[in-house]
Amino acid sequence: MGGNGPAPKSNDRRARRNKDAIPQTVLRWERAEAPELPDFRVERDGQLVEFVWPERTHEWWQMWIASPQADHFGSSDWQFLLDTALIHARLWRGDLSAAGELRLRVAAFGATPADRARLRMVFAEADGLDGGRGSSGAPSAREQYGQLRMMPGGKRAEPGKGE
């Protein structure tokens, strides 16, 4: 027996088809090793001088190399992050105008919990640590109440206990 109401629209008349408007491009994945912060020269007062990375930028770079996200970085990711390191160095040298651009760039790599949530990143180790009981670690509802059964008349009875 059919349901109530009008017949559904045919697929070619539906406004929403849940298909991607632009097809996805699948790329071959190649993990890349992190480069070291390079030595180079910059022009200062008409002279070429050796660029000195702030110590804080060295620490920041090592943090990215050790991050879980780094396992998923390709060569273009590391190049973008290397350019971002220059912005980080500017900020730590006192150029506060670099802060906004730095924030935008590191957000693309999942720097903060909010960034990782937006990028749908999760830490795999956390999935198995709770034994499948959910985030609180408390027993599941099935573990707590799985033995309860309904009695005729709608009253609950615990196994092994009379009324």
Rank of each mutant, 00 (worst) to 15 (best):
K9T: 14
K161I: 14
D127R: 05
R142H: 09
P139Y: 09
D20G: 02
R156F: 09
Q144V: 05
K19V: 04
I22W: 04
R105A: 09
V26W: 04
L129A: 11
R105M: 06
I87V: 12
T112R: 06
K155D: 10
P159R: 13
A7L: 10
A32M: 04
P8D: 10
A138S: 11
G154N: 08
G100N: 10
A114L: 08
G137F: 08
Q144F: 05
M151Y: 07
E163V: 04
P159V: 06
A66S: 14
A89I: 06
D95C: 02
R105D: 07
W92K: 04
W53P: 00
F109H: 01
G146M: 09
P113Q: 04
G110P: 03
L27V: 10
T84Y: 00
W60Y: 13
P23M: 00
S10Y: 01
D83T: 09
R13C: 15
N11C: 03
E143C: 08
R90Q: 11
G131L: 07
R41I: 02
A124T: 11
E30D: 07
F123I: 04
R120A: 12
F73R: 00
G154T: 01
W60T: 02
E50G: 14
T84C: 01
A85K: 01
R56V: 14
G46K: 09
E101L: 11
V106F: 04
F109D: 00
K9P: 01
E30V: 14
E30W: 03
A70F: 04
A21C: 01
D115E: 02
K155M: 08
R116Y: 03
F80M: 07
R56M: 06
E158Y: 09
G162W: 05
S97I: 09
V106A: 01
L129N: 06
G160Q: 10
A107W: 02
L104H: 07
W29K: 03
A126Q: 12
V106L: 06
Q69T: 05
F80R: 06
D83H: 08
G2K: 15
T25E: 03
P38Q: 12
P23N: 00
L104S: 06
M151W: 05
D130E: 11
A138V: 10
A138R: 14
M150E: 06
L86C: 11
N11K: 13
G128Y: 02
K161F: 14
M121P: 00
K161A: 12
P38C: 07
A114N: 02
G134L: 07
G162Q: 11
S67W: 03
K19G: 07
G162R: 13
W60E: 04
R156A: 10
H72C: 05
A99G: 07
E158D: 07
R31H: 14
S140M: 12
G132E: 09
A138P: 08
D115G: 05
E59V: 08
F109M: 10
A32V: 03
A157M: 11
H58K: 15
W60A: 02
A111W: 12
P68K: 01
A111F: 14
P23D: 01
P139V: 12
T57V: 13
Q47E: 15
M151A: 12
V122S: 13
Q24D: 00
E59N: 08
E50V: 15
G146L: 08
D115S: 06
K161R: 14
M150Y: 02
G162A: 13
A108C: 07
V49A: 01
P152K: 03
L129R: 12
L27F: 10
R118Q: 15
R13T: 11
A141L: 12
Q147E: 14
R41P: 03
N18T: 07
